[in-house]
């Protein structure tokens, strides 16, 4: 327990320091978030045109609109970009100096993740607000704070899941020279299976069973569905259960692989 408290304290301090440091690049964050909302808006316009020209979609206009307006926030909030950097730290031996420190190397990456997201949020929320306002007539807004609370919890779990998957991939750097192809593969596969490109509700019937239960759905699509879709209470509970389950399972695997990696690690340059 003591270790956990200490690590959390370290993360808090490092996050605050990171925020101070990163806020120098305010302009860059705004540009970044501008790029982030381009894709969802393009998709939104395309699917609305399809609906308007008589396409028979399994979901209605309100679902599509709400889905893509919220998509930008959720992809940002659950994203992780650390795999390449962590793999580099392992390969180049930066890990060595952290092994004698009283906190894990990973705390730095957690702090970086939290601080960048904190700053991106400031740039992104006004943009989403404008898009929301433009499409306000066809947005699904759930009544009551309950759904929004679940939305927030689900985003948090989704973010943990993506981060853990990244640790898992980066840990392979203990044994492999170059994991960048794997990192790229993860990004490409996740972009489709997470629902970031097309809402999973529009996937063909034959893929339903797989698409609905694979882990990537719980990184982006599921949190958005909580607000945009008409998930029943049962589906909601089951979904959150699945999400939590995936977090726990992947965390266990990542922990195993990481500690096996640490044992196999022979510091470069030592």
């Amino acid at each position: 327990m003591n270790t956990l408290v200490r690590n959390l304290r370290v993360v808090r301090r490092m996050t605050a320091a990171d925020i101070a440091q990163q806020s120098v690049y305010r302009g860059a964050w705004i540009i970044f978030m501008l790029a982030n909302i381009c894709m969802p808006i393009i998709s939104l316009l395309i699917w609305r045109t399809a609906l308007a020209s008589g396409a028979q979609l399994p979901v209605d206009e309100r679902y599509i609109t709400t889905y893509f307006v919220l998509l930008g926030v959720v992809t940002m909030a659950t994203s992780s970009w650390m795999a390449g950097f962590l793999a580099q730290d392992i390969r180049m031996g930066k890990l060595s100096s952290w092994m004698i420190r009283p906190a894990s190397l990973l705390t730095g990456f957690v702090a970086n993740n939290l601080s960048e997201k904190f700053l991106k949020l400031f740039a992104l929320v006004p943009m989403i607000g404008i898009v929301w306002w433009i499409f306000r007539d066809s947005m699904n807004i759930p009544a009551g704070p309950g759904r929004w609370a679940l939305f927030a919890i689900s985003i948090l779990l989704g973010a943990m899941l993506v981060f853990i998957i990244d640790i898992l991939i980066a840990s392979l750097a203990f044994w492999m020279d170059d994991v960048s192809a794997l990192v790229q593969a993860r990004v490409i596969i996740a972009s489709v299976l997470s629902g970031a490109v097309v809402p999973l509700a529009l996937m063909p019937e034959w893929s339903r069973g797989f698409v609905d239960h694979q882990p990537f759905r719980y990184t982006v699509s599921f949190p958005v569905e909580i607000v945009a879709g008409e998930l029943t209470g049962r589906e909601l509970l089951a979904g959150l259960g699945f999400q939590l389950g995936y977090v726990v399972v992947f965390a266990a695997i990542a922990r195993l692989v990481w500690s096996a990696g640490i044992r196999a690690y022979s510091a470069v340059g030592a």
Binding site: S43, I46, W47, T49, A50, S53, G54, A55, Q56, L57, I188, S191, V192, V197, V198, L202, M203, P204
Partner: peptide
């Protein structure tokens, strides 16, 4: 391949758009 996915899905629901 993935870039074509949205197009293919879209034309699964309709035969012509605009």
């Amino acid at each position: 391949g993935l870039g074509i996915v949205p197009t293919l899905l879209l034309f699964g629901f309709t035969s012509e758009v605009g």
